[in-house]
Each structure stands twice: as structure tokens, then as C-alpha cells.
Design a binder for these strands. Structure first.
Length: 587
RNA sequence: GCCCCUGUAGCUCAAUGGAUAGAGCACCGGACUUCUAAUCCGUUGGUUGUGAGUUCGAGUCUCACCAGGGGCGCCA
């Protein structure tokens, strides 16, 4: 929020440097990193080091301290600031609280749910995430892509981009044929009634079990695959019907998670276009056709003249002419840019194990002359695994079903709500439990580096204490509670009661940082920073809550604190929205 | 063999190349007649895997090594 003020100071420092024939450096600005201090800060070590490198015999630390002191004297007390101080080579410039506290609160209360939103850019980006396989279970391992992709989309949107959210379900392949085989043979005519996704997953697990017990049945599966390849109407009809069951189940899950998509691309949809691209690659001399003895391959390192292995070889079509993931990804990338030619970026939120795969696909498309290929970007994330380094696999049954986790988390939240708020209606209690339970599931996936493994265990997944979503939601509820009990609307204006308490200063400081945190988090595609920020904001409010009475305070203080409380509540709400976590009205 | 990721408190994780490496959990001890205790306060806990280098300054950058995980021509 203070870019302009910062720039004015930076200009003055630049003047100082010119007047004193000092070399030019790019000053880095930070918040004063001490709790309860509110202002911006920079240091003079770089400048001093530059002087030293130019031949002056100086001690860098001492010179930095000297420069900081000189600049502090040069600046005096600039308008809008309370004081300027030089400490150990750092320059700390404190905001004038009376001016800026009210400005921050005003801005938040005026902009409301748009506080923190970046200026609209004329740029469209696509985020592909949550690529679930139909005819399989939806387990906790699938959750990370869905949650991460959703929040990255929210961040990019809030930062000012137009975002197209794309889903890419795996609706065909061996797993689907196995499922259809098992269904036709052992469950003909059955229809799922409830728990669709679990039922679908059970049949898939059953198929694998039966095939493992009786490997001779594999020939039946192969025969069915051949029928699918011929587009046998009976098989196609059954595939379409059963696929829809899965998709209906996924919709229910997405609804619970508050995740939505703008466009669906299906695996089956890009199978044939993929083969066409392969033909094109062969014609262009990029792909080598080794059929029928071998597959169609793109020898990337050879084409690029690389001496060391980097992109290796990408197989783009099997020797029996059937499509691979790579085949389809080539076509999918193209389809995205055909449908949305103005995409400035096409993101893929897919697990880290496919890093090489995506590098290969994007490089192949680049070599094929598609200029947009360089705008494709893989956003890798690490897996959610089980204790003991066990990867969740629906085939082996080593999974925690998402619906079980949601049910358990929601039930625990409900038990607490019933105890604390017995008077609320059952419907409201259920809603709160849902918000708290889902939030508790989402937060740990967001509050860590994308590239770090999440080890799922029930105990920590259901721990609602400490740095967790319920903590942030609770701060929101407390703020709302104060405002409700005030028995008056939030005052239109209130004079800042100086001096502010350290808790008030810290709170206002944090609120003012939301816009910058949004930009930082979005540009680095790191939900972690917003997740951490939301927690710090809630913590600052809880500190304020215990230290600074609002309703009991004398009128002028009360009015100011009511406005501060309202602004905090809004900032927390906006942060939670970015995290895809619902802010309940009571807890 | 080549490449990628990770290594920070007992555990799970933070930390724009910058000031005193911070949170949560767990443990121990406190605070509800008060705006909701899903909260707050306090105590304990560190050779940032090891060794060098770059830098005024390294948990952060570079190199080597160690440990764990992952990827590498017809799996998805």
C-alpha cells in the first residue's frame, strides 16, 4: 500500500547519492522486521561495498553505518513519517501512525471484498489441475493438485489475471477397460445410488484383484480393449454411461471443496488429435518412425545437438499405433491455445514425477514450431503419502478415501460446535462443521512448500489447534462477535487514538501488507505465503483481542477499535477466500 | 551411470542474500464472573547434514561429499 511513499523516499536517497558523488545502487526495501514497529527499511551495505570495490579503503560495516546516519540526517523527518533512524547500517523509516492507520482502515472498509485485489491486467492464463481418473476412487493423494490448483487460480485471479480453470479427467485407458470388464462380467445392470465414487473405486479394486487371482482372464480384458478400439457401440454406450457416474461423483466432491472449473478437457478427446500431431512430427523430421519394430520417438538431445543428456528421448506413439500420455499431451497443449489463442501462460499443476515428461512435451512442441510452446509451464508438487513412505495407489488399496476424511473431519468439528454453541440450529451447526472440517483439511496442504512431501496421518490431519485453518476462522468469528455485540453500526470515521498499542500497530501493519502478499504469492505461484500471512494476521488479532478491550473502552477508543476490528475481519475474510476456506459466522 | 527434489528444535514446518534463525505440535507451569478458552501467557528446546568457496554479510548462492526420496524409449 505504500509504494508511493517508498518511492518518494527512494528518490530523495538518490538525490543524496548524486550530491555526494556516490555510485548508484538499487535499494531493496523491506518492512521493519520487528514486531510492533511499523515502517519501511533499507540498508547501505551494498553501497558501501561498491565504494570499497572502487578502491576506497573503508570498512564496509562502519561505512554503511555512516551512510545510514548521513541519509537519516539528510532526510530529516519526511512528510507522513514519524521518525527516521539509522541503526547498524540500516535505515528505518517509521510511518506517522495518525495518518496511515486511518488510511489503511479506510481503504479496507471501502474496498471490502476487493481489498488486496490487483489492478486488472489484460492477460489471460490457464491453470490445469486435478486430473482425476474416472472409474477410480478419489483419494487423499488426489487432493493436493485440486487444492493447490484451485488456490493458485484464486491467487492469479485476485492478482489481476483472467484465469481459465481447466480439468483434464483421465476417462479412458487400461484402467477404464478393466473396470468395464469387471462390471459387465460381475455387476451387469447395477447402478450406484449413493457414495458413487467409492462404489466406482471398489469395482476397480475388484477388477484388479480378480485379474491377479486369475491371470488368464487378462485375455478377456484385451478383447474388450479391442472392442473399444473398434468403437463397438455397446462398449461405447456403457463407457459413456459409467463415465458420467464418475463425473457426477467428482462434481459432488468439488462442490464440497468449493472448487470449480471453467472447462473440461477429456483424455479421450485428444487421443486422435494426438496421433495427427505425431504424423506431423514425422513429416517435419522431428519424430523418427521406428514402426512396426519400434515406437515413434523424438530424439530431443540429438535434435538439439546436446552433448550431455537433458531431454533424452520422448516416445510419442506405441509401435502398435496406440496413444500414450505423451501423444495426448501434445494435442492437449495445442487445443488449449486453439481454444484460447491469447493465453499468456498455460500452467499444469501436476506432480513432480512428471517434470521430465512435461519438459519433453513442451520442447517437442517448440521444435515443431509452435511459438506458444514456451508459454507452457509445469507447476510441480510433491505427493501426499502415507506413513512408512507408502504411496497411495487405488490398485493396491493403500488409500485414504477423501470422503472418509471429510466425514471424519466434519464430525469432529460438529462435536465441538455442539458443545460450544448448543443453541444454534442443526442446519447452521452442520454448515459450520463443514467449513471447519474442510478448512482443516485444506490448510496443511497450502501452508508448506509445493515441493515438500505431505505425509498423511489421521492425527495431524484432524488436529484443529495451533497453526491451522480453524485458528484463522476463529479469529474471524471473534471479530464478528465484537461487531455484533457493539449494538451499533461500524462508525463511519474515528480519530486514531495515539499512541497506538503495539498490538494495534502490528495489526494495522499486517492488514496493510495484504495487497503486496497477494502479488508476491501469485507471481511465485506459492500459496504458502498467503497461508502464512493469514495465520499471522489471525495471531495479531488474537493478541489484540486479549490485550485491547473494544466494547469496554471509552468512546473514542471504542470507535477506533471497532473500525480496526471491522477492517481486520475483512482482511481475514479476503485471505480465507484466497485459500478457498469458508469463513463461518460462528464457531 | 546421468538428472531433479529434500535435509533447520524431540516431531511437523517457516524464514526477499541482511538486524536476535521463527511458528505450531509435544512436555511442564499458569489464565475463563470479562468482546466465544477452537484462545492467551510463560518455561524448556539450534554447530541450519558435512566440508570448502563466493560475498561487507550465507539456512539461503556455487562446488564436492553424506543421507533420504523421485525420474530416466513404447506406465500413467
Amino acid at each position: 500500500m505504500f509504494e508511493r511513499e517508498q518511492q518518494i523516499i527512494a528518490e530523495k536517497i538518490k538525490d543524496f547519492c548524486q550530491e555526494n558523488q556516490l555510485p548508484e545502487v538499487d535499494f531493496q526495501w523491506k518492512w521493519i522486521p520487528f514486531s510492533g514497529h511499523w515502517g519501511i527499511s533499507t540498508s547501505f551495505f551494498q553501497l558501501a561495498a561498491l565504494e570499497a570495490r572502487q578502491g576506497k579503503k573503508i570498512n564496509v560495516n562502519a561505512r554503511a553505518a555512516e551512510l545510514a546516519a548521513q541519509v537519516a540526517a539528510y532526510l530529516g523527518t519526511p512528510q507522513g513519517f514519524e521518525k527516521v533512524e539509522a541503526v547498524n547500517g540500516y535505515l528505518n523509516i517509521y510511518f506517522l501512525q495518525s495518518t496511515y492507520a486511518e488510511q489503511v482502515i479506510n481503504t479496507v472498509l471501502q474496498e471490502r471484498e476487493n481489498f488486496g485485489r490487483g489492478v486488472r491486467r489484460n492477460e489471460r492464463v490457464m491453470v490445469e489441475f486435478s486430473q482425476p481418473n474416472t472409474h477410480k476412487a478419489f483419494h487423499v493423494g488426489h487432493l493436493r493438485s485440486a487444492i493447490l490448483g484451485d488456490v493458485i487460480s484464486r491467487l492469479l485471479d485476485f492478482a489481476g489475471f483472467s484465469v481459465v480453470r481447466a480439468n483434464y479427467p483421465g476417462d479412458i485407458g487400461l484402467h477404464v477397460i478393466k473396470w468395464l470388464w469387471c462390471y459387465m462380467k460381475f455387476h451387469p445392470g447395477e447402478k450406484p445410488t449413493q457414495d458413487i465414487t467409492r462404489w466406482m473405486g471398489d469395482i476397480y479394486a475388484e477388477a484388479n484383484r480378480r485379474l491377479e487371482e486369475n491371470p488368464e482372464l487378462e485375455s478377456e480384458v484385451r478383447a474388450l480393449y479391442a472392442r473399444w478400439d473398434r468403437r463397438d457401440p455397446e462398449v461405447v454406450a456403457l463407457w459413456e454411461e459409467t463415465r458420467q457416474w464418475s463425473l457426477n461423483g467428482f462434481e459432488e466432491i468439488y462442490r464440497q471443496l468449493d472448487i470449480h472449473f471453467d472447462v473440461y478437457y477429456f483424455n479421450s478427446q485428444v487421443e486422435h488429435p494426438g496421433k495427427e500431431i505425431v504424423n506431423e512430427l514425422i513429416a517435419k523430421g522431428i519424430a523418427v518412425d521406428e514402426r512396426p519394430e519400434g515406437p515413434v520417438v523424438v530424439k530431443l538431445d540429438e535434435l538439439l545437438g546436446l552433448k550431455t543428456e537433458k531431454y533424452r528421448v520422448l516416445v510419442v506413439l506405441r509401435s502398435d499405433n496406440t496413444a500414450l500420455y505423451a501423444t495426448e499431451d501434445l494435442a492437449l497443449a495445442k487445443k488449449k491455445f486453439t481454444d484460447y489463442p491469447d493465453l499468456s501462460r498455460s500452467y499444469y499443476v501436476v506432480d513432480v514425477r512428471q517434470s521430465l515428461h512435461f519438459q519433453q512435451v513442451f520442447k517437442t512442441l517448440e521444435l515443431a514450431g509452435y511459438e506458444w510452446a514456451t508459454r507452457c509451464q509445469h507447476i510441480p508438487y510433491e505427493l501426499v503419502i502415507l506413513p512408512g513412505n507408502v504411496v497411495m495407489a487405488s490398485r493396491e488399496g493403500t488409500v485414504v478415501l477423501l470422503e472418509d476424511l471429510i466425514r471424519e473431519a466434519t464430525a469432529r468439528a460438529l462435536a465441538v460446535v455442539r458443545e460450544k454453541n448448543p443453541d444454534l440450529s442443526e442446519e447452521v451447526k452442520q454448515k459450520i462443521a463443514q467449513a471447519v472440517g474442510i478448512g482443516a483439511i485444506k490448510y496443511p496442504m497450502l501452508a508448506r512448500e509445493n515441493t515438500k512431501v505431505v505425509t498423511f496421518d489421521w492425527q495431524s490431519a484432524l488436529d484443529f489447534n495451533g497453526q491451522a485453518a480453524p485458528y484463522i476462522q476463529y479469529a474471524y468469528v471473534r471479530a464478528g462477535s465484537i461487531l455484533r455485540k457493539a449494538g451499533q453500526p461500524v462508525p463511519e470515521e474515528a480519530k486514531v487514538c495515539e499512541p497506538l498499542t503495539p498490538q494495534e500497530v502490528e495489526l494495522i501493519n499486517l492488514i496493510s501488507r495484504l495487497p503486496a502478499e497477494v502479488q508476491r504469492s501469485a507471481s511465485e505461484l506459492r500459496p504458502l505465503w498467503i497461508a502464512t500471512y493469514a495465520y499471522e494476521l489471525a495471531k495479531a488479532f488474537n493478541d489484540f483481542y486479549t490485550q485491547c478491550p473494544v466494547l469496554q473502552a471509552e468512546e473514542s477508543v471504542r470507535n477506533f477499535r471497532l473500525r480496526l476490528t471491522a477492517a481486520t475481519r475483512q482482511a481475514i475474510a479476503n485471505s480465507l477466500t484466497l485459500l478457498g476456506i469458508t469463513a463461518p459466522q460462528a464457531m
